[in-house]
Amino acid sequence: MPSPGASLIPDLLAGSRRALAQTISAIEDGVVEAPALLSALYPHTGRAHVIGVTGAPGTGKSTLVNALAKAYRAAGKTVGVIAVDPTSPFSGGALLGDRVRMRDLAGDPGIFIRSMATRGSLGGLARATADVISVLDAAGFERILVETVGVGQAEVDIASAAHTTLVVEAPGLGDEVQAIKAGVLEIADLFAVNKADREGADRTVLVLQMMQGLAPAPTGHHRATAGSALPQPGPQEDGSWLPPILKTVATRGDGVEALREWIERHAAYLRALDGWSRREAARAATELERILRDRLLAHLLAALPADRLAQMVTAIVRREIDPYTAAEQLLTQAV
């Protein structure tokens, strides 16, 4: 039987969506040829603007991705979407439901949507998504939107894989001051306060401003008025970037075009300040380190007798040796 894989990469580069989908699967599955596939694609990457979309469950990320993708299509850009959901640690399966909110995007050849489970494995989220991002990039998609549920490490990982990170908040998550995690300030390039049609959106905006140090804590009636004294979001005089806070109603598309324009402004800011290449360099460094670490470990383990590692572990548990000395001995033995 002729192999369907033989022309995978040429077909992908020629625009075959089937070849694109199969390449993503091969890389997700970690087939032995995955590194060779990625090597072949690498010269064709580096053109896409990668936008991470993260936030608490149910804040409207998928609906917003749907609306943003439409706005990008209206602006003449092609869009790849990666929607990541967690793998169940119990069964290893996953329920990937983000497409339900993206039905408006059906039938458009300028859009490609892929749902992805974290598979919670070696290298974690960053590895798998970074690789799938590369595949969509090589296939020529100009903007790549990556949706991840903002829980724990996932949102930090996505920030390291994206050029621009959009954090989605929504009113009504209870006490905003506690619901909005302090960590988001470090990863957010933009905030969307989605579901702005709901009560409390202004308060969510205020809490975010407060966290940015722009507004005093809201105390009863004495709400700080957003006066002209506040610094304007965007590029600052010292070269830093103050994340804008934008209200959106993703279900209606309200505020989405403004959000898209801000995302583009952030890309322009990165490019102007050389930040783009610095982010690219940071991404490349992380990537290379990770690959090296994996390869070195595999190399080292291959050079040791099969049960050597297990013996050492037993010895460590019995306190016959400490882990540092054990590592030293294994290294000496392997080299």
């Binding site: 089937r18 989908a21 119990f90 399966g93 439901g97 497409r99 039938g107 749902s115």
Partner: peptide, 28 residues
């Protein structure tokens, strides 16, 4: 199917045959 270890892409109601096949293709 998820509990049986599979990755299940759920697309919701009122799908046209075209939408279903497009999703099947993209999701491989």
């Amino acid at each position: 199917l998820r509990d049986a270890g599979m990755e299940v892409i759920y697309t919701g109601i009122r799908q046209t045959p075209e939408m279903i096949v497009e999703a099947a293709l993209q999701e491989d």
